[in-house]
Computed example of a mutant assay.
Amino acid sequence: MKTEHDTITTPVTADILRGHLDVEATAHGLLPHRLPARARRQIPDDQLAVAEAQPSGVRLVFRTRATTIELDTLPTKRIYRGFPAPADGVYDLLVDGRLAAQATVAGGNVRMITDMVTQSSELSEGPARTARFTGLPAGDKDVEIWLPHTEITELIALRTDAPVERAPDSGRRVWLHHGSSISHGSNATHPTATWPALAAALGGVELVNMGFGGGALLDPFTARAMRDTPADLISVKVGINIVNSDVMRLRAFAPAVHGFLDTLREGHPATPLLLVSAILCPVQEDTPGPLAPDFDGGTLRFRATGDPAERAAGRLTLNVIRDELARVVHQRAVDDPNLYYLDGRDLYGEGDYAEFPLPDEVHPDPAGHRRIGENFARLAFGDGRPFANVTG
């Protein structure tokens, strides 16, 4: 008979995962996905295929008395040729909602990006390793292990020194959010420090993060996935990827937004729905894309390559998009009283840029993520705001 001091292996199954939309059985274990299989079959590029498989916001959730927990995983890390390898992704372990321990996993597969523009890559296979957490508080507790937000992570085995049981439902509202690499967590140092994770903690909600690096492009398959995902609150943050990839002109943009919202409303007809524009990004405020990487001085920065004069011909900038989003929400207000608009510059604007500049001119640093998360919590979850928890 096993005692609490024996090592117990618990299968990693979908019922102890949260924040995912699908799981895939692999040769090694279980791979969480943030888009369902039907949507994944429609993805047109490798960048989005990689981004949706990076488990931003995905976590294991269980109840246990264990003081030592081990999680065997096979990570796939992304490295850009010619640049130093980034630090290993961080696993955040929370006990009863508070960050209690962190771990990293070295090794694993390496995806070498050989061209930043085309995102072409080469894959080198590596070994599985273990994230180990020791010295955890004794006694019954709810444990969450948030997976690295920028590493594809195949889950192999969970080992503990006490039995594991499924955690009861938290009873918290579910917030479904879609956005770009900033929502995905670019430049955040660990998974519970992305701005959506910070805002979710402050708002007391369960996060399902569909922020995809480079992938907030009003794709119909993303709208259908959100339509079919249970949620109490929904937000869509759109603008920066459409401008910096230069995929659309003004004539097509507003109808695409309407179509995206129409699809969401098929599954969530009265759910509070917040449409959010881009945060301040000076290089794209009035200059069309596409963006191009600039390595001048050995530091990666981005610059807009479009001609501002072409706005008259329908080229999009962030200011043009903000005006259109506000107009779309105003147009729909008669039929959709639960649709709201939030200007992204209220999350991160000129004052924030002066205090926490964008290191690469597009993505906020860790302090910027905290500022955005705090502002979103105040403007979305605060009293009288669209996501306020109204009872009675």
Rank of each mutant, 00 (worst) to 15 (best):
R224L: 15
R251G: 14
A193H: 11
L275F: 06
A309G: 05
R249P: 09
M226Y: 09
M248F: 02
A199K: 03
P282V: 11
T194Q: 05
L264K: 09
L250W: 02
A312T: 07
A252W: 05
V243W: 01
A252D: 15
R301G: 09
F295A: 15
T287K: 09
A231L: 11
H190Q: 15
V276T: 07
P191T: 05
A188D: 01
S180R: 05
Q284Y: 12
G211K: 06
N241C: 08
G185D: 06
L273R: 10
R265G: 13
G267S: 06
S235N: 13
V208G: 14
S235P: 13
A188H: 05
P293E: 04
S180H: 04
R251C: 13
F302L: 10
A231D: 06
G306K: 04
E206C: 07
D294H: 05
A252S: 15
I182V: 09
E310I: 01
I234T: 01
I182R: 05
A304T: 00
A193L: 07
T305Y: 00
D228I: 12
V276G: 01
F221T: 12
R227E: 15
E266V: 03
R311A: 15
R265F: 08
L273M: 12
A216C: 10
M210Q: 15
N241E: 00
A193P: 03
R249D: 11
I242N: 14
P255A: 01
G306Q: 14
N241A: 11
M248K: 11
V208P: 07
A231Q: 11
F221S: 14
E206V: 12
N187M: 12
T299M: 14
